[in-house]
Design a binder for these strands. Sequence first.
DNA 1: CATTGATATATCAATCTGATATATCGTGTC
DNA 2: GACACGATATATCAGATTGATATATCAATG
Lengths: 225, 225
Amino acid sequence: MLDLAILGLLHEQELHGYEIRRRLRDELGLFANISFGSLYPALSRLEASGAVAVAESTGPATVAVPMPSTGSISGDRAGLRARRAGTPRGTKRSRKVYRLTDQGRDLFEQLLDAEEPVGTDDARSFGLRLAFARHLAPQARLSLLERRRGQLTRRLATDRVRAAGQSLDVYTRSLAEHSTEATQHDIAWLDRLIESERQKQAVLRSETGGPRSGKSMTAVKGTNP
Amino acid sequence: MLDLAILGLLHEQELHGYEIRRRLRDELGLFANISFGSLYPALSRLEASGAVAVAESTGPATVAVPMPSTGSISGDRAGLRARRAGTPRGTKRSRKVYRLTDQGRDLFEQLLDAEEPVGTDDARSFGLRLAFARHLAPQARLSLLERRRGQLTRRLATDRVRAAGQSLDVYTRSLAEHSTEATQHDIAWLDRLIESERQKQAVLRSETGGPRSGKSMTAVKGTNP
DNA sequence: CATTGATATATCAATCTGATATATCGTGTC
DNA sequence: GACACGATATATCAGATTGATATATCAATG
């Protein structure tokens, strides 16, 4: 799951580990505080599998990559030299900037498009996929939304059973009721997204395949900046 | 965190591993599908540390099986077997029923009352504590709710910054907006809980400490069954 | 110029997940 | 009767994640 997040961010531009963490936290809002003990090994794995590659560690074009062996502790010397040599931007300690390879691009699409196993009911997994939904084909995007809706509907059923339980104290009951409401709210949101997607696809079809009778009952709320 | 959940469930009655998992899933709704690879080692740890003890798995005649009348849909299979056959002990794989020790009771209170470190913004941790909030002193209960409210308020601020970001596509923006709404909804819920708690404590004070001017502006919504 | 805080990478033990193995028992089904 | 199947029940493993800690650079503060 973290792999997908990393590949997705690198899809846009080259990034180093620390910056990936920052974006995950500040921009995506997923993985509120992903651990470095998780991030760096993930990057190493992806590098070993050929999905990402180290792209020129921030230096002026003169400095070569320190050494093939990952004894990067001695690499900061090169970073220092690079900075003194007049690098315009604030080059910190020698960064390892990663870029996506063609193989990584394939892996990204494969991971993004894959249906998570049925038992999975993870808001994170969906949120991550939605954040990269623009890279999905319209049909796959719709499938993602509908799959998630199914998950939530199933959860709503069990939530209601739980909230109807008799042996609950005030707090547990309130928790169950609130959970039910939150799930309903999520479903309503998804319904808006799904409707919006259907509208978009109807427009696309009518543009490419000739005018068809599109029953547009609701205004499309989402606006593209 | 799982330790707290286990201890909390055992606080009520003796349980075996499989049943603990079922209750976590079906009754509490937390740990949607806690892994056995997590649960059983946790039970072993707790047993090793003396917080729980094995209470006669398939005891000969005196079977300490939970009452089948109290909503225990399944849970008397072994007991049935034991009663019917008289069970020559040892040959069959049987349940390991755990009970809370005095030491475990102390640990439970300690874990439940402990403030989680400031960086923690975990809905699960709060949900778990709320589910066992009836074991907390009124003041500690109020602290828990207010601490959580603080967490959510802080999150709301970052959520809003994120939603105001300019470089977001439709999907990421929708995600950010929905996240903001969900957090607001959570805060409103907490406010109702907090108000309800304050009412309760005011009533308690007026009952024990003589009649005081209780300005009851809002009706207490939560009702105890 | 010493100290703090942000940037940046790395590693470790403890723990969690998802998968798999093993075994018993009740139920349906042919 | 046999025989598959699903639920109950415990256990273990590889791989991934967390939270902590270590190391180092750099900017700002006093």
